[in-house]
Amino acid sequence: MTQQNQSKEQAAENIEVWEDVVNIKDLVFSMLICSVTALGGYLIAPNDSQQPLLFGLAGVVIGFLICSIIVKPKRVLRYEDEE
């Protein structure tokens, strides 16, 4: 498949959520990753006082980093020079 076709197909799956454009597959992927890392962190943590929460939080941060690396933003920036 050529790159153009690919981007066209992807474009067909882009929708607006919270005033920005997201790709359906990427969104589902990100939500899965973040849920797994967050709950995973919470569940594997040693069960005393605040440990589960901190592990869960660390999980969310890891999930965020993974998603930011894999998923490309759907925004297109264009610069306009000030006259």
């Binding site: 920005d20 990427d26 939500m31 925004r75």
Partner: peptide
């Protein structure tokens, strides 16, 4: 921010947080 932070990741983060807090 516009170039490197995908909106999907932000939505994913808040969804993940809510799930975790719901379970808790």
């Amino acid at each position: 921010v516009f170039k490197y932070i995908p909106h999907e990741a932000l939505l994913g983060v808040f969804f993940g947080l809510v799930l975790m807090l719901a379970y808790m």
